[in-house]
Nucleic acid binder design. Structure first.
Lengths: 205, 205
DNA sequence: ACCTGAACACCGTTCAAGT
DNA sequence: ACCTGAACACCGTTCAAGT
């Protein structure tokens, strides 16, 4: 008797169903994945270990969808800008996934690859070795925060002008929420790269 | 017949119980708050509207525990550094609360007060008006990311040296997790302020 | 080896009922 | 006005039982 041609389930099917649910509803659950795949809830545990495991697989998925681009033949500034941008773009692909990712430590080796590229790039900047780690972390903080903000619902951020005049001036003509986030990201990216450049030149101590 | 001397419940009691549970376990729930206060779960809904409402009250609590310090009699650089630091310190007070806060939009007016101070400070830097919003957002991203990282469990971040040599060099002697985060925060803070200073001087475009 | 059904210990929220 | 108990529709995870 031949063994069954195809199993009902696979890690890939589970991850895809989870991602689809996240994109559509902002979250996933075992019951809903099982329903989506026409399978019982408990059978999922034959392929994956836990909810956290699924989240880790989703993170890896984010880095496998868009292959990393070679970056060695540019100035370190342009290379850094490119890496940070592509990091952000991965999150932008599935914005609703971001909140699920930020509270969990990274295990996926694919993600490490990007950190490695960033480390290599920052070494070219002339930044002292002990500053490379902090620089990577700072960039990570910034990109994560920006990704989280992009997730937030469009809210008319109108903070009672009479109480907060400077804030009103600052947010007066800031356009749509997406434009606001994009401008903030571009600004922060320039400022970070410029700041790192100064630090590398020892112009700040 | 006199009315009861004191109600069994108050918003303050609920918020304090929730914060205690978060500090101890990393989360709160209606059943556990109710048990803590010796009260039925459904009675909580007489004082608060939803789980999200409690989270918003916890955020406000974070800003009321430490009163904001006056900041007008310093250089804008020192003032900015101070504001960003105190922002981060609020999170550090209750690290396990941070993951609950980052995925929810801000409503608390207390928080707006800090943004207003930051806006006033950045105006003094000479930054063009249209850059103030992006600057505040970038700082917010950075501080939030740093706070999230401080929450993460101490993990020996040892990424198989042979695969990621630059990453290994960067993280070689980075000490404890708390030290690592502190160094990253200090580095990023300097870099951000220096970058904003350059931008204000039109030295970058 | 893989899948199912039932069970367990949790959630947030609502609502009729009591005082 | 405030509190309770019961109910509802959800969770993640385990495990004996089937094939």
């Amino acid at each position: 008797m031949p063994r069954p041609r195809s199993a009902l389930l696979s890690v890939e099917l589970i991850v895809n169903a989870a991602l689809k649910l996240v994109d559509e509803t902002g979250d996933f659950s075992f019951p809903r994945i099982a329903r989506e795949l026409g399978v019982s809830q408990s059978s999922l545990y034959n392929r994956i270990e836990s909810r956290e495991h699924i989240i880790e697989l989703l993170r890896a998925q984010l880095f496998e969808e868009i292959p990393p681009q070679p970056v060695a033949d540019q100035s370190w500034q342009d290379a850094a800008r490119m890496l940070i941008r592509s990091y952000r773009d991965r999150f932008a692909q599935h914005p609703k996934l971001v909140p699920l990712l930020v509270t969990q430590t990274v295990h996926a080796p694919v993600v490490m690859g990007m950190y490695e590229d960033l480390a290599l790039t920052l070494e070219r900047s002339g930044l002292p070795t002990e500053d490379i780690g902090p620089a990577i972390a700072s960039i990570d903080y910034f990109a994560l925060g920006a990704a989280l903000d992009a997730t937030a619902p469009d809210e008319v951020w109108d903070p009672s002008p009479e109480q907060f005049p400077a804030l009103r001036r600052a947010t007066a003509c800031s356009g749509t929420s997406a434009e606001r986030v994009a401008r903030a990201f571009n600004f922060g990216l320039d400022v970070l790269v410029a700041g790192i450049e100064m630090r590398a030149k020892q112009e700040i101590y």
